[in-house]
Amino acid sequence: MNIQVNGRRIQLNEHEITIGELLESYNVTKRISVVEHNKEIIKKEEYEQTKITNGDTLEIVHFVGGG
């Protein structure tokens, strides 16, 4: 399936994957981050239940330096 992560098109072999699994695969879990799935913020407790399917859009954001 094809998904969009932070504006980049990403191809995955899986047909379905949870947000938890995706974050794990990018080693993001230990970093302070927030996930938006199809414009909806996903709570950390929901990572394992929320499924990503073909065509979904994800934003994985964090805090960076700013004034």
Binding site: N6, I32, G66
Partner: peptide
């Protein structure tokens, strides 16, 4: 203060 931006998920070593 901080800004909110997309994370570079391909750079695990990005200092934060």
């Amino acid at each position: 203060t901080f800004a909110v931006r997309r994370m570079d998920i391909f750079d695990e070593e990005e200092p934060n």
